[in-house]
């Protein structure tokens, strides 16, 4: 098996998708001639030409909206947002226009496009370049949201997202780009949207997570006294209720690990669904491990504390399993 950088999985998925489907085009800032700010589009211009791999001005609203129009008229645009925050200046085109295209035309017009962006904290990019922001899209009927977690899921999710008949937001944790991993590409490999994966079997608690927190959850499970089952949710909307509910039925405990503040994290929806639909299978209150309600700090030690670490996650899950009570988060303990 070959060792690859995770950023190469993005590149390979885009390259293969463009080769397999001539309607796939790409737009974004410095993605063509420069090969991408994160080097995830290197070589695509040479391989597929300037009509399909398109450098844009710094005009997110224009190219996001152009993607909507092109999608409606038969293309499959893949838009790169570089840092997910940048879609803030183009949000209407995605959450209000693309998301309602099918609805307003009663199915005659659709917008099969992909917005991909690097997202998340951990590298000292500061509060305006470090958020996940999946909640901006999750709450919008008509959009799907996925989060990648390693080379395999990056390839499998991106290929499925590009082939999906509806608009999909693909969030790629930036911290993972420069990670290396054993992975053999398989051109036919796909991860169906809406399907979660159990990435570690366990009996004491179900730890549901996604993105770069999957690594944290797995490391926590190794060091924990409890026997933890870890689920990589992969698609945040629409999420895989069955896999989670079945797991909780076996373990009796639900914990979510989210790179999001409590108020907007996807775990609120997971917990509410399980509490409503599977109340009887719970031995303990559901528990959420989230970020504090604060912008992402720049300082290294502060950002390290801000993000859940394996030790903190293990401590939280162990407390839940041993007491059957939901432990307070670190910032409330400190107060």
């Amino acid at each position: 098996m070959a060792k690859i950088w995770i950023r190469q999985a993005v590149l390979r998925a885009l390259d293969d998708a463009m080769t397999d489907d001539p309607t796939v085009i790409m737009m974004g800032e410095d993605i063509a001639a420069a090969g991408g700010p994160f080097k995830v589009t290197e070589g695509l211009l040479a391989a597929h030409g300037p009509d399909r791999v398109i450098d844009t001005p710094i005009s997110e609203m224009a190219f996001m909206g152009a993607a909507v129009g092109a999608a409606v008229c038969g293309m499959k645009p893949v838009v790169e947002m570089m840092f997910i925050e940048f879609i803030g200046v183009a949000l209407d085109q995605l959450t209000t226009q693309a998301a309602t295209m099918r609805y307003l035309s009663r199915g005659r017009l659709t917008a099969p496009l992909v917005v991909r962006a690097s997202a998340g904290a951990g590298q000292g990019f500061g509060c305006q370049h470090s958020q996940m922001l999946d909640h901006w899209f999750r709450g919008t009927p008509g959009l799907k949201v996925v989060v990648t977690s390693n080379a395999r899921t990056t390839y499998g999710l991106l290929r499925s997202a590009i082939e999906d008949p509806d608009p999909v937001v693909v969030l790629e944790p930036r911290v993972l780009y420069a990670e290396r991993e054993e992975y053999e590409f398989d051109r036919n490999y796909r991860i169906p949207l809406g399907q979660a994966e159990i990435v570690r079997k366990g009996t004491d608690a179900t730890l549901v997570t996604c993105g770069s927190m999957v690594r944290v959850a797995l490391a926590a499970a190794e060091s924990s006294k409890a026997n933890i089952e870890v689920i990589d949710l992969l698609t945040l909307w629409p999420w895989d209720r069955k896999t989670v509910a079945d797991s909780v039925a076996r373990t009796g405990r639900l914990v979510t690990l989210e790179e999001a503040p409590e108020g907007s994290g996807w775990g609120g929806d997971v917990v509410s669904h399980i509490a409503i639909q599977a109340f009887g299978s719970l031995k303990a209150p559901p528990h959420r491990i989230t970020l504090p309600e604060a912008p992402v700090p720049y300082s290294g030690p502060l950002e390290a504390r801000f993000l859940p670490s394996p030790a903190y996650v293990a401590e939280q899950v162990d407390a839940l399993v041993s007491t059957n009570k939901s432990p307070a988060p670190w910032w409330r303990n400190a107060a």
């Binding site: 710094i58 803030g88 200046v89 990019f125 509060c127 305006q128 370049h129 700090p297 720049y298």
Partner: peptide
Amino acid sequence: AGGLGGSMHLVEPSVGLLPTAAIIG
């Protein structure tokens, strides 16, 4: 900014400087 902001976010109200923005425009 007390170390909370970083390179992209300098600020000093006493000389009129609002926090520098990392988002274009």
